[in-house]
Design a protein around this nucleic acid. Structure first.
Lengths: 346, 346
DNA sequence: TTGTACGCGTTATCAG
DNA sequence: CTGATAACGCGTACAA
């Protein structure tokens, strides 16, 4: 097993100095054609490639960025990664993935590990626990060391950095407006607790749509679910909560759910209770994942353009890394949502 | 904005030498309590952390591994990543993710980029194009440089390295056996072209089950689909292919599909054609993703234990990295599948 | 008890 | 045209 070859070895082998080899390989005009030929041929033969780590150390630049997300087994986040990867690779960067698993401490540890020279910047979406604790010291520390951060989707207003978000408020409002214009009179909302920023915004969108249409806010139409419970595992619990919602208000004829799973479960429960979708009850979800597309009936949904979010975030980060101008002006890019109409609405 | 602090800066500030600082921070007995206290306090104040890149260069070890997969927006692969991440982090490694996007050249480029010192080893599942071309030079080159590779799921027999696979053959056989014991007499197979190794093995499992049960092989019950077509985008095309299968042999009463999407589409088409599932036609898929669980009816499926595959792969790789014994003995770990019975079978 | 020197692999600068 | 030297940040064997 032969180790990777280095400049030093080539130099020794060819009986020239290291710097001559280095220059020859970079086609420096300082070096004679003769030596260049010799060195380049030898390097090619042994498949020489400069060592990235040494370059990183010398240039104080790793050409690697990290994306830190709460959960990877999730259509939305994996699509964001794909977007980040796409742009990063195109612009010559590698991507390290870190998972916080929705835990504050894992988020902090991960950031500290990576911030010590391993990467040039972060793209991240904060964990639920961090949202609850509202402890953002690790973001501030990282940024004060000159390492840029781009937040996406779940962002925090208190931190001054580049951000990529979806217009959750407007997306939700549009969805509910659609239900209303489709004739729904009593629209149920299935959402999360307010500390989940996106849940809160989508809830506000729902409320705004009702208000604009001068519809009454009926308290028993709103179901707020504890989001730190893993409903993917405890589907029964989720479904019985939703069943409660349907029973609490028999007049329900529309559902807006802040994510795919809630929407799908609502359809399932509704059908089980004898309702017909979309004739009897219309449903719209948020996040355009695989489930929505392949459900029966397929689910109308607010698409977040996850991949585009990832691409935008990567561009923002790399632009900042490559623009030496230490701008203190941060931007927030809002990705427009759009409503994908499928079979669950008329 | 303050840069990250280095040993050199601390040394200058405290008017001692760099090595004194280094030793003091590592609690060397060579250093007096006094100096230690002083240095450690200062370091803590300025939140000193050793630079990973410098350590990597010095130790010729990055403590980073790469996972190279064909596609990330895919339940199976993201679960594998989760498993890899889990183990890697626990054992002190970071994870770089590379996407080949099913392309041979992207796979090669990615490997070359990362192999130049950025990482200590690879975990990978080869792209479809690589399977077709059967060009494996990049794997050999990487390994001959002393960089270990662990392949998972889509592996190549010609390469001698650690592997983690699922028993595709047995999993498929069991699934088909289940259909047979459930009373199916004419079982359709929806599979891919044979160059996809897992597709081939699953097809063989189907054939074996028929043979064992002395059932006739009916050619018009087998649908081989071109897998380099993106059926996720062209669902219609997929469905019309499947409709053709049903029409070709009206006696079909069971379907075994080599992936989730094929199985789901089969159910959809069957229902559209007036069949009842599972009374009339029973269906089993491969890969236990979100779709199977949330479909209506929910899909019985062969579970691959993706996360466990990732964990095993990571352990194999890190073991090899940390065992200086340059063993030339490679192992192949077979992860047992199991059949998850849901509503699509009796 | 502290400091010096070296090496990891590379490039840039300057001297020959 | 070529080579020696310094530097990136760290750890450690050895010298003082």
């Amino acid at each position: 097993m032969k180790r990777k070859i280095t400049l030093k070895q080539i130099a020794r082998e060819l009986d020239v100095s290291i710097s001559t080899v280095s220059k020859a390989l970079r086609n420096s005009p300082e070096i004679s054609e003769d030596t260049k030929q010799k060195v380049q041929a030898f390097a090619k033969l042994y498949n020489y490639r400069p060592n990235n780590i040494a370059l990183s150390l010398k240039n104080r630049k790793t050409n690697t960025i990290a994306i830190l997300i709460p959960e990877i087994v999730h259509h939305f986040f994996s699509k964001v990664i794909r977007g980040v990867e796409l742009v990063a690779n195109k612009r010559g960067y590698n991507v390290i993935v870190g998972l916080s698993n929705e835990s504050f401490s894992k988020e902090v540890i991960n950031m500290e590990m990576l911030a010590n020279g391993s990467i040039d910047g972060f793209i991240l979406s904060i964990s639920k626990e961090t949202q609850q604790l509202q402890d953002y010291h690790h973001f501030n520390e990282t940024m004060s060391q000159g390492m840029p951060i781009v937040m996406f989707d779940r962002v925090v207003n208190e931190i001054n950095c580049d951000k990529v978000i979806v217009d959750d408020f407007k997306g939700a409002k549009n969805a509910v407006n659609k239900l209303i214009s489709n004739g729904c009179k009593h629209i149920g909302l299935i959402t999360t607790n307010d500390y989940v920023s996106v849940g809160k915004l989508r809830t506000q969108g729902y409320l705004e749509a009702l208000k604009e249409n001068k519809m009454n806010l009926e308290a028993d139409l709103i179901l707020k679910l504890e989001d730190n419970m893993d409903y993917e595992v405890h589907l029964d619990a989720l479904e019985s909560e939703i069943e409660g919602l349907f029973k609490a208000n028999e007049k329900i004829d529309g559902i807006f759910a802040v994510n795919e799973l809630y929407a799908l479960s609502a359809m399932k429960v509704a059908r089980k209770m004898g309702h017909n979708i979309p004739d009897n009850i219309q449903v719209i979800g948020f996040t355009n994942g695989v489930l929505s597309k392949h459900a029966t009936p397929s689910l109308s949904t607010v698409s977040q353009h996850a991949q585009q979010m990832g691409e935008t975030a990567a561009d923002l980060l790399i632009n900042r890394l490559e623009n030496d101008s230490e701008e203190e002006i941060y931007q927030t890019v809002v990705i427009e949502t759009n409503l994908i109409e499928r079979e669950s609405t008329k």
